[in-house]
């Protein structure tokens, strides 16, 4: 029992500390690494909740794919050794106030609410059930969102290529601007 709680608090502490570091670090590559650590810790939480499949997805897709993508773009646009100027105090104060107000509001609301416990038997979420549900045409099947997501991903891929490729109209304009 106690091991559970220790595990949870450890992960929580990691998540919060690295989150804060992500948004405050003055070196961009470090910020990316902190984000990676946050995402990995989050997948630890998923393991705790017994969702192994999603935890694996979190690790491969989020921590693996997206962070790598971000790091690549950092390498394309920034000098790694470059340090950011610190954010202006006025701006950070206002942002912190807004965020703190939101956080306090949300937390008080959560603490006020009485969550009832479920009396249903827990379902074993194994790969077999997930696969069946994902491709099922039944009432609780997910074939339609699955297909929609596949098209969205294709569209995003094409859009990424078109927007970022060299020699587009925007690029020619910037060429003209430079001249």
């Amino acid at each position: 029992m106690i091991a559970n709680q220790i595990m949870f608090f450890l992960l929580s502490a990691m998540i919060i500390v690295f989150s804060v570091l992500t948004v405050t670090s003055r070196k961009i590559l470090r910020a990316a690494v902190y984000l990676l650590l946050v995402l990995v810790s989050t997948s630890g939480l998923y393991f705790m909740l017994n969702y192994q499949f999603l935890a694996a997805i979190q690790l491969t897709l989020y921590a693996g794919g997206i962070v790598v993508l971000i790091i690549f773009s950092i390498l394309l646009t920034s000098h790694i050794s470059q340090k950011f100027e610190p954010t202006g105090w006025k701006k950070s104060l206002l942002s912190a106030l807004a965020s703190a107000a939101g956080a306090i509001l949300a937390i008080t609301t959560i603490l006020d609410f009485k969550f009832g416990a479920s009396r249903e038997a827990a379902m074993e979420v194994d790969m077999h059930a997930i696969g069946k549900s994902l491709l099922s045409l039944d009432y609780d099947g997910y074939i339609l969102p699955f297909e929609v997501i596949s098209i969205l991903l294709l569209a995003a891929m094409i859009a990424g290529i078109v927007i970022a490729k060299k020699g587009g109209p925007a690029d020619q304009e910037s060429q003209n601007l430079k001249q």
């Binding site: 701006k91 206002l94 965020s99 107000a101 939101g102 509001l105």
Partner: peptide, 20 residues
């Protein structure tokens, strides 16, 4: 952009306070 976002988020928090 961030000015807009700030106004938006403050507004959303304010609305939430009002509603709750």
């Amino acid at each position: 952009l961030q000015q807009y976002a700030f106004v938006f988020i403050s507004g959303a928090v304010l609305l939430a306070v009002l509603m709750i």
